[in-house]
Design a protein around this nucleic acid. Structure first.
Lengths: 214, 214
DNA sequence: GCAATATCTTGACGATTGTCCAAAATTATC
DNA sequence: GATAATTTTGGACAATCGTCAAGATATTGC
């Protein structure tokens, strides 16, 4: 019997491990494997990703996955949770340092374009996993949590933008996030379809939009 | 050798069949099978849908699918195309008959709620397939076409709404569609998660939004 | 340095997948 | 009503899937 079940229970209940560092080691490997899984998922999509393919993108063999994860769903849930940490602070630097409305907008647009240009695969994975949550209960809580984090992120940026202009945000949190999310998703598809202007078009759309919402 | 390849070529090139009615018959069966496939896809999602499962939801066996479709991708592409026809005119009746701003808004919200309540599975399939287009080239053109149709639909409704108020739409077509699409997707997830207030919350969000965009 | 534990590899399993094909069943044609 | 063409069936195939367990290897505690 592997120690996983015990460790898993510990992690869920928050009980302390008998041996200090043991959980950390296991957790570290779980994250390592989850990151390899994220790469594979981003490349192939949820529907085409197998455990063997994930293992091949790591430095281990496929058997080890069942040593650290209950099953495939457990692994992918771990991926989703780990994915979150990457995203939610993406624009905080811009928000914190910008000293004018234009500066904030420019910094935001730059970062937005950079994200679309350098990480399209990771973002298409997000949309894929969010769609999976529509079918699979196990994903729903995590996906909702990430969605909320992203909503908060958009709200923070826009709040600062409004503040710098002495204005108030004119739409609801949901609507604000929805419009940014929808625009990003649309131009992500364009970008992946080979549209060279996708990045600049997105930036232009957002540039026109910002003064309307705050 | 089946006639499919010939028929397929005919359909692509638009050449006339040797025997009148032969293509229609084949096309009709293709649609019949595509509709059975749509039901299965809506139930299980793209990742978990197999050809045998699709056939079981139809009145045929799994072998017949390869008589009418090149392969699985061909079948699902046919599904996507067929799906489109159902959606794009959903709100046209409301737009055509409404004689006041309030009437249009109420009719739109009613239809929106009814859609979310009665067809959540078909809509989660749409979001699933749109995400698949981020990975699979074969879906991209069809998905883009559907997206455009939906964008136009939203634009038609909002245009009429603006017209009835003697106003102009204040945002771009992309942004307008993005915000509606994003809000719908969010509340679809809520609704499928068992949130009883999802429908009314969506309606309330849209009710607040409409006067802001037109 | 030995025993015990933890970690990893490897191969196997039953099930399922998309695809293909020969034959049966059905329909159309004369 | 016989023949030909079309449509459908159902089984076989190779490949791949998630899962599991036994054994090899590495690490730790004493």
């Amino acid at each position: 019997m592997s120690q996983l079940a015990v460790v898993g229970t510990r992690m869920l209940t928050g009980a302390k491990p008998h041996k200090p560092g043991a959980v950390d080691k296991i957790a570290a490997r779980r994250i390592e494997l989850a990151e390899a899984a994220l790469e594979t998922l981003a490349e192939l999509g949820y529907a085409r990703t197998s455990l063997r393919e994930i293992a091949q993108n790591s430095e281990f063999t496929h058997g080890v996955l069942h040593y650290y994860f209950e099953d495939k769903l457990d692994l992918i849930c771990c991926c989703v949770r780990h994915y979150k940490a990457r995203c939610v602070t993406r624009y905080d630097q811009v928000t914190a340092t910008a000293r004018s409305r234009d500066q904030l907008l420019s910094g935001f647009l730059d970062k937005l374009g950079e994200t679309l240009r350098t990480e399209p695969h990771m973002h298409r994975l997000w949309y894929d996993l969010r769609s999976q949550a529509l079918f699979e209960d196990a994903f729903r809580d995590d996906v909702r949590e990430i969605d909320e984090s992203l909503e908060n992120m958009v709200w923070r940026v826009t709040s600062r933008y409004a503040e710098l202009g002495g204005k108030e945000i004119a739409v609801s949190r949901s609507a604000l996030y929805a419009v940014f999310d929808g625009l990003f998703q649309k131009h992500l598809l364009r970008h992946l379809s080979g549209d060279q202007d996708a990045v600049s078009t997105l930036q232009e759309e957002v540039r026109q939009l910002m003064p309307m919402v705050a």
